[in-house]
């Protein structure tokens, strides 16, 4: 997929663990892992909003378009 998820980088930048983020945004760690690995087919605006809120960042910090 040409959309890259940079969630790992943001988590390191904020010094937050995946489990912590999953708890804050209210999704399971399994689903967060799917999102991080790029296996997710889509992301809800509500999830994106919650992630941006928890990590204090912009959607562009998490999602990146990479030409294949």
């Amino acid at each position: 997929m040409s959309i890259k998820v940079n969630l790992d980088i943001m988590l390191v930048k904020r010094g937050m663990k995946s489990k912590e983020l999953a708890e804050i945004i209210g999704i399971t760690t399994a689903n967060l892992s799917i999102l991080k690995s790029g296996k997710a087919k889509a992301i809800r605006f509500s999830t994106l909003e919650a992630i941006c809120n928890a990590l204090d960042c912009q959607p562009s910090d998490i999602l990146e378009y990479v030409e294949v």
Partner: peptide, 8 residues
């Protein structure tokens, strides 16, 4: 259904 399951 699969698409829905993989929508986070």
């Amino acid at each position: 259904e699969e698409d829905n399951e993989l929508t986070i």
